[in-house]
Nucleic acid binder design. Sequence first.
DNA 1: CTGTTAGCGCTTTCAC
DNA 2: GTGAAAGCGCTAACAG
Lengths: 393, 393
Amino acid sequence: MSTGSARPKTPVALAAPGSDGAGSKGSGGSEGATAFAPPRRATISDVAREAGTGKTSISRYLNGELAALSPDLRARIEAAIERLDYRPNQMARGLKRGRNRLLGLLLADLANPYSVEVLQGVEAACHALGYMPLICHAANEIDMERRYLQLLTTYRVEGVIVNALGVPESMLKPIGSGGIPAVLVDRTVDGLDADMVGLDNAAAARLGVQHLLAHGYDDLVFVVQPFERVSSRREREAAFRESIGESIGGPADASARTLAPHARSVRATTQVLDLREDASVEAALAALDAHIADAARRDARCALFAANAPVALRLALHLKAKFGVQWQQHAALIAIDDPEWAELAGITTIRQPTHEIGYRAVEFLHERIEGMALAARAAEFPGELVVRASTPG
Amino acid sequence: MSTGSARPKTPVALAAPGSDGAGSKGSGGSEGATAFAPPRRATISDVAREAGTGKTSISRYLNGELAALSPDLRARIEAAIERLDYRPNQMARGLKRGRNRLLGLLLADLANPYSVEVLQGVEAACHALGYMPLICHAANEIDMERRYLQLLTTYRVEGVIVNALGVPESMLKPIGSGGIPAVLVDRTVDGLDADMVGLDNAAAARLGVQHLLAHGYDDLVFVVQPFERVSSRREREAAFRESIGESIGGPADASARTLAPHARSVRATTQVLDLREDASVEAALAALDAHIADAARRDARCALFAANAPVALRLALHLKAKFGVQWQQHAALIAIDDPEWAELAGITTIRQPTHEIGYRAVEFLHERIEGMALAARAAEFPGELVVRASTPG
DNA sequence: CTGTTAGCGCTTTCAC
DNA sequence: GTGAAAGCGCTAACAG
């Protein structure tokens, strides 16, 4: 209630020129209670005065050039800083130095546990390397994504880590090879030639498929959100198809047969599930129901392979609604991503080393910021199979 | 790993300068591939030159003072900006203006869905009001919390939204009444007299208790993390006890009896569960098991009341491990917070209007930033009961 | 060892 | 209408 929608559509503010919010400004003085003029934060000059010295020495002290300060001066500075509760203004520092130690982190969807986990890795690395992550959450709105990318540019971050939805090419101009260093997480972006960190999708999909085949499932359905510009979705799906081909000795080489000696015929299908539209979800779910029913009729063992956690959740909810608490006995489910509730729901997953992914992303970025200028690299981490109740047999 | 602790205790800086990365610096020139000298971003001066005018006019244009510009000049400026792909440097702006439109958002734990949801509300409000949220994630580390608070100060954010773990008093000096405006979310902080936004804990606990009593449960156990400095935990627990008192016509007035006409005796206990320590978790869980077993023996109907989602998850995992998929039939569970998996797990919850909480927090802060100086306010939003399988009967 | 002098990129009087 | 000049808080040459 009373929240967003009906607000006066403010011009632009941060993102562009236009208005700067008329009003307020004049109301400056004393008004209600505690009218203490906000004790302006001390500046370096204040400290210099207080310590009876020049700004330079203060600056030196702040930057750890302690060797160049007499013990006495140093003590006075220390005291002055303490007395004034002085904190150097990072903005000013950044302005002067040309570097502000800010890293932009653009996340497509924080509601996806994957993002939060990667974030934690990013934070850890940032602390270790002395950066401050500026977290931007696109909330699945491609428009937000664009705005944030601009904003980051505007704040002159030294680098950006992008887990994109699908930036419209043009937005990329400022980042990448020419401009501010960038590293992609989980998915590549078409026009952009930058470092990339993520899951080894091919291996992960294969891992899942092999698990499923080994457990006797022979009707596999890969469920994934619309591919759009998300490379990982596409890669996972492709790997899903391929690894089935290999495993059952399809067009691939025969050596793979050892994996499934009793060469049987396996069905592989893909079902797109657009979580953004209820109608689409309904339709897809209905299709899936039909598929499952058909499989049962054919006496085939059907398993659903969710491309990621959000899809898995939707699927699990549906299966549970349809088959009850014991749904696992009616339809198998495996998913890439291992959210905390997977254990509770008893869903077999392929866990990504999210922390490492985030950590490495920052390391890559750091190297780039420090000047490294080689061809774009890619770090693909292996996933780990976590077997649970949803893939019995 | 390798993170903070062992750093050479340098004076101030971002938190710790010291090694500013020796090396690199000199390697400036041409190295590997694309050795294009990073095309320095255009500045306002560049634009002025390009447009054949002074910086002032550019600035005017940027700030929407279009009225003061001849159509011609305006057009030239527009073109120049376009040509140079110019973006004003927010840092510089902030430095000059004294306000940078940055809001600090200090979150205790992003892994808690609650935080993410509040965050979304905060973001929405920020966009509407023209702020840029600077998200800081303390990851349950009180030390991080302190560091971030300092950092925010250092970046001169205009205000902070704090969902604290327990800042050690001293850290609060800079924020609150005297210094930078702050608003607390979900929990108050002892020494701090600031605006506060959160759930109406008393009402929420009562809602849960009444639901439980109405369904015939008569042995209620409130499970909560160590109270420490987290006011909401304390409040919820207190309200839990009180509302049971009222409802069964304890010390409270008799009118409440209508809620539980057949005045029976109800047991109310509290169990602390420290999620940070495995040993503690084990012990608490064992105690709970004993309690449940005892209740069964006494033929009492026992229900667990989780103070928040993390606790609920831990509890549900345990119950499931103990009683199997059908655990809901052996022990009832209700929780404050309504994470997305609650539906899947079939857990009755009391949902918080998280989005609004975040939104309102920013509104409060905005008012404060704009100069309002009245006594601290508090906004307590009501929770909403969502009944699911975990509280049958 | 220490202070003086220029700015970083932008806004803002204050004249023209 | 438009621009020149003076800083915001800080760092980085250069002199002493």
